[in-house]
Design a protein around this nucleic acid. Structure first.
Lengths: 218, 218
DNA sequence: CGACTACTTGAAAAGAGTCAATTCACGTGG
DNA sequence: CCACGTGAATTGACTCTTTTCAAGTAGTCG
């Protein structure tokens, strides 16, 4: 089930930088941009899978929900990224908008080239999943938050950013890293006290000592 | 980019069984089986990627090594499984034989069908990675070990097995689950005391109460 | 039989979680 | 424009789990 009721009709398709070019390349016949409000669901577990999405702006969280309400966020996606890969005919994940989001639905044809590019995209997703597993599996709370900040503190080309906007809540960060919100908060406070970061406000920070963060990630 | 440049052209498009079907089906003109001793390296970080492997028998561990010696095992592969997917031209992982292993090297051609099947295989790997992330991210020690036992206590069709052989060490299990060997050992002892499992020997056990294990996984 | 490695067990310490109380930030309405 | 209410974030005190460090035991291979 796909609820578009909250989706506003696309304003103007913002032009975006070329990158994982290919499927739904920018210059190609780009479909309309669908817009979602913060918190709006993009797809849910049980939905029929198949469609892929290219994020034009905003941040999307992809997650699983457990019977007891616990949540594991698998990934945060940002502008330019493509998400929505699924192994089966049905979705096993939920995806929704962290903040206002605009995206394009990609409708892959059956061409050779497309299939290859899909493979590359899937392999990139796989790599990210493994990186994330490493973060969660082999780091203490400090290391996980450090890894998260470094991830958010780099643009898509890996270029380091000094200022970071965190559109997601502490709860989102906790569910991404396998920590409680209290622990996330305490770690950020410690990093602030140690002058590794500067917290301009709760959702906006500056990295003062990137090297220290990198050392924590191990 | 997925580099097929070194891939040899496929002999005969193998007929494929339904499921993670595919590339290098058993009955097709299968290449020679390469044999590895326990502990032998199949590939290493930095090796050129591209080749895929189909495991004929034995268990393979795929892992990452950190600068300080910590290790994160991403997956254990068993007979029938295909592994070796990588996003770049170079491998980011190590793979070696847990016990004596036999495998076939798969050489994908560039055909449409092949590329599609590769995509399916990659998506299955992705799904497994996400399952593993969930295990490690949202479970305590008991839950992780329970999930591990259920994983090892099922054959490739998901059929439940009562008796389990664990070819891997406690250290392997710990590095797979993000736990220390002591914790793994203690949890197994607790499960034994609670008569959830029976430990015939350190590497061989029997699941007495599968339902209890399932409840722990949440 | 002896040496080596894997595994188990125990006690103490560290880390993260839980519960609870504030504090903060922001949007709403007076 | 300010007061208030709501949800988010922080902080504190305490508990519980897991790690760490240290023996000790069991298996295995020569």
């Amino acid at each position: 089930m796909y609820d578009f009721s909250h989706a506003v009709s696309p304003a103007t398709p913002p032009s975006i930088a070329p990158y994982p070019a290919g499927v739904g390349g920018e210059d190609a016949v780009a479909g309309p941009v669908t817009v979602y409000n913060a918190g709006a669901e993009i797809y849910a577990e049980g939905d029929r899978s198949g469609a892929l999405y290219r994020l034009v702006y905003g941040v999307v969280r992809v997650y699983r929900l457990l019977a007891d309400g616990r949540r594991q966020i698998c990934a945060f996606h940002r502008a330019g990224e493509i998400f929505g890969f699924e192994a089966g005919a049905e979705r096993h994940f939920f995806a929704d908008a962290v903040n206002p989001v605009g995206l394009r639905v990609l409708r892959p044809g059956g061409e050779v080239e497309t299939s290859r590019e899909l493979l590359n995209l899937a392999l990139n997703s796989l790599e990210r999943a493994h990186d994330h597993l490493l973060t969660v599996g082999r780091n203490d709370a400090m290391g996980r938050v450090a890894a998260f900040l470094l991830e958010m503190g780099a643009d898509r080309d890996g270029e380091a950013l000094r200022e970071i906007d965190l559109p997601m809540s502490r709860a989102d960060i906790g569910d991404y890293l396998g920590l409680t919100i209290e622990t996330v908060s305490r770690v950020l406070t410690r990093l602030k006290s140690a002058r590794v970061i500067r917290l301009a406000s709760t959702r906006h920070l500056e990295i003062l000592r990137r090297d220290v963060l990198e050392d924590m990630t191990a």
